[in-house]
Amino acid sequence: MNDTTITVRRKFDLTNFFLSYGFYILFAVMFVVCGIISPFFLTKDNLMQIMWGATTLLVVAAGGTFVIITGNMDMSVGSLALCSSAIAVYAMNHGAEFSHMVIIIFAVGAAVGAVNGILVTYCKLNSMLATLGMMTLLRGIALNITNGGAQTTLPDEFRMAADFKIGGIAVLIIVSLLILILFQCILRKTRFGAYCYAIGCSEESAKRIGLPIRKVKMAVYILSGICAAFVGFVTCCKVGTYSGTIGNEMEFDVVTVCVMGGTSLLGGRGNIFPGTFIGVVLLYLINNILALTGASPYIYPFAKGLVIFAAMYVDALKNYRRRT
């Protein structure tokens, strides 16, 4: 009698273990399989290449995690990345230099983030709809002032920033990782982070105990805006030109990686490191292995879809288990 109870409990623990860490297990399996498929996969250069690809999404996903943890959504990030760099290009055509352009990129990011924040906090609009509207609007502005997003060569400093390396590692990768770790610390160690979780769990209770809800939400949206602008900046650096494809469909990618990494869309749960980080790396890993093996690129969206599907279902099953 006693024995059976123990075995049952042990079994349950095992399932629970798989469910809790299902996403990380999936990632590890993917990693090993990729290593077996292609001998080039586990080389230092290639791993660095994956990180290099991931730098764009890493930072914006980190910002997005904050927004989602407070129980809101920011669908405007992709367009914002495009729009901020478009305005910088517009300024460049009117004589601005590199440093001005960088300032403009981030200023636009913060400003648009603030507008999003006002719409969501003070006007109390549904965050998804309001930012969807902003998404259309920003894309319109960006394509309008750059003649439909025609390719423009940027000052050489952008390429130089991308080439700049410390100890053989591109500085952009280092910066992204530092930002990631910094954000994780803010989320876990500061009062601000705790407020984010509290608001996400229950805005009503947060209001009742007197937390500065509006300020926190505003800050979160501005942060997300700046992170989105960073994407625009990094993409410009990487290729050295501006084109209308910057930030294309990034908004759904952000939500996807956050949710894969265990952040709940209902708010109040999630982390940036390792959750969101692994989510982003997983996306680029699929991309990378398909390019390494020379697979048809048309398989890519489907393969990506399958992995995301699996990851999200594992996450959902975990919640289902917890509830019952």
Partner: peptide, 24 residues
């Protein structure tokens, strides 16, 4: 050697051409 279909996406090419060049 290989045919990379970019779907006219420069960012995709930038992220994936290096892998192809290393593998070949």
């Amino acid at each position: 050697v290989t045919d990379l279909d970019t779907d006219w996406d420069p960012d995709w090419l930038e992220a994936n051409l290096p892998s192809t060049m290393r593998a070949n």
